[in-house]
Each structure stands twice: as structure tokens, then as C-alpha cells.
Design a protein around this nucleic acid. Structure first.
Lengths: 159, 159
DNA sequence: AAAATATCGTTGATATATCAACAATAACAA
DNA sequence: TTGTTATTGTTGATATATCAACGATATTTT
């Protein structure tokens, strides 16, 4: 209880995990977005969709939302943009007229491979000073926390 | 090389740290923002400024930017809003007319203490299944990565 | 089969976050 | 002192992210 000014509880900002996470994510996303938009003409959401489409070719927007955890509105707008840039083609699911199916074009494939190099390099730079066991711990813990978020957001204080 | 479809490199989304971080931060921030705005009438930026002002009473907006890593535009707008809500008072730094000094009002103090309870509870829920050594590792690693971000964002691919 | 319900994707509104340009002031240099 | 440069905070523009409302289509219930 050394440098807490006055009475009452205060956050220790260096140990408060939500702030550490948010800060890091903001900086990473902003940097990536700026770089990708300038060099490749796509934002970070488009990049994440490209990456997903490489892993799972021909999937529905709905499935994209589930996998990358983005709102369907964001996905809808990004797909529209990528379609205009001829990075993907969108067709109707023959088994269900509500659904669509999104596929990478050759252009989209090529762009993916370009951005991929840069994205991997950025991740490498981020992690390169971490010991192997720290990297593994980080990934394990982040996956765990991602599963916990639903519980956190379900909490409703009784005021 | 089992479930990589086709040739070329693909991201493993469960192991790609930037995505794991971003996903987690988005969900946490969105949930906190919704809750705080509904229950307390402030957004997540305002909450972070409240927390900072509790730790360092009477600081300049510029200092706030440095500590919480937010752009000065965001801080400027949040302070204006908090001033209108009478959560803070803003006065000119007597030693430098460019600077201002922001202080919590009693109202601001009270609101801080209210939000604090909820914020701590949310962090507790997030972390409660983690072993103590995992929590410590997480905090240590996040602080390290936060220092690395500058290096990552300085990287410019030569295309 | 008809009505009620659920799912999928689009759109408008809003919150969050950053950048760039700017005005005011301070610090520094010639 | 005067001209140049740097710092501080504001504002407008834009990117990112979510929610709520909606239309269209499927599914389920009655």
C-alpha cells in the first residue's frame, strides 16, 4: 500500500489485464490497418477474412462471424468491398437461399499471399524476444480467456 | 501439414497471436462499454480516465495519453464530455498556458468507486480459472509485448 | 397448409480509435 | 529581440466495431 494515493481502491494499471489487452490490441490493429491499407488497399478486417478464406474456402458470411468473432454487419460490409475489389466472388447457397457462399478469386489468393508475408513478419517481430515456453503459455492462456469472455459479459451487477 | 487446404501458407487462427489478442480485446471492450454506458452513463474511455485520475490526481491530458496509450483526440473528447457531466474540473496549468490540469470532482470520485467494483469483478471473472503462475506469466508477457509494439509498427516491408 | 418462429444477411445509427491539420503558447536559436 | 521550432490540445475526417431494425427465406408448430 505504498503509492496508492488517498483512500479507496485504485487500479494498478500495469497489472490490470483488460487494460493491458486493450492497449496492445489497439496498437497492433492500428499499425496493421495503416500498413495494409497503404500497401495493399485493404483494412485489417479484409485481411482477416482473406486469411480465413484461405483456410476454409467457400464459406458463408455467418460462418465467418463465428470463426473470427466479428459482427455480421462488419463482415457484410467487408465482403461487399472485397467483391468490388474482385478479391472474392459471392454466390447463393444452392441448398438455402438465405445463405451465400464466398470464395477467393485468383486476385484474392494473390493478395492473401502478399499480406501473409507481412503479417507473419509482424507477428515474428512481436514475439521474437519471448522464450518458447512463454509463447506457448501465451497462446494457451489467450485461448482460455477467449472462452471465458462470454461469462464475463454475461455478468450483470445488481445495483 | 494435415489440414492446410491446398498449397501456399495459411494462418493457423488458433495460434495467431495478433488475432487472439484483437478478438479478446474487442469482446472485452464491447461488453464493458455496453455495461458501463448503460449503468453509469460513461463509456470505456471515460472509465479508464477515471481510473487514471484516481491514481494520479490532477494531471494533464498529455500525460493521460502517455499513460493509457490513447490518442490525444480521444482524450480531448472524453474530457470534454466528463466536464459536462461534472465528473472532472479542468483548469489551466499556471506554469504553462498550453497545458491544462484535470481533476476529479466528488461526483467523479463517487462514480469511479462505483465502476471500480464492477470492473474488478469482471476482471476476476475473466481470470478466475487461471492458475496463479499463469496470471503472473500473462501480466509479465503482456507488459513485454506492449513494449514491443513500437518495434512491430516501425517495420516497413520493402515491396 | 397456414401461422408462428428462427436464421441469414443488409442497412442505419452510434461508440471507439487514429491521423492530419490547426491555433495558441513555449522554448530555442540566430 | 526576432524568427524558428516544438509542444499542447481541439477539430474534422476516416477506419473499426457493435447493436437494432428490417426483409427475405427456412423451419417448426398447430
Amino acid at each position: 500500500m505504498k503509492d496508492s494515493p488517498e483512500n479507496g481502491h485504485t487500479l494498478e494499471l500495469d497489472n490490470y489485464v483488460p487494460a493491458l489487452i486493450t492497449f496492445l490490441a489497439n496498437k497492433l490493429s492500428a499499425g496493421a490497418s495503416r500498413l495494409y491499407r497503404e500497401k495493399f488497399g485493404v483494412g485489417i478486417v479484409e485481411w482477416r477474412l482473406l486469411a480465413l478464406l484461405k483456410v476454409e474456402p467457400c464459406i458463408s458470411p455467418n460462418r465467418m462471424c463465428q470463426v473470427i468473432g466479428l459482427d455480421k454487419a462488419a463482415v457484410s460490409r467487408s465482403i461487399k468491398q472485397m467483391q468490388q475489389q474482385q478479391l472474392v466472388t459471392v454466390l447463393e447457397d444452392p441448398t438455402d437461399a438465405r445463405k451465400s457462399l464466398v470464395e477467393l478469386t485468383d486476385r484474392g489468393q494473390a493478395l492473401h499471399d502478399q499480406v501473409f508475408e507481412v503479417a507473419i513478419k509482424r507477428e515474428q517481430l512481436l514475439l521474437e524476444e519471448l522464450a518458447v515456453e512463454d509463447r506457448e503459455a501465451l497462446i494457451r492462456i489467450l485461448n482460455h480467456l477467449n472462452r471465458r469472455v462470454a461469462v464475463v459479459n454475461a455478468y450483470q451487477p445488481d445495483l
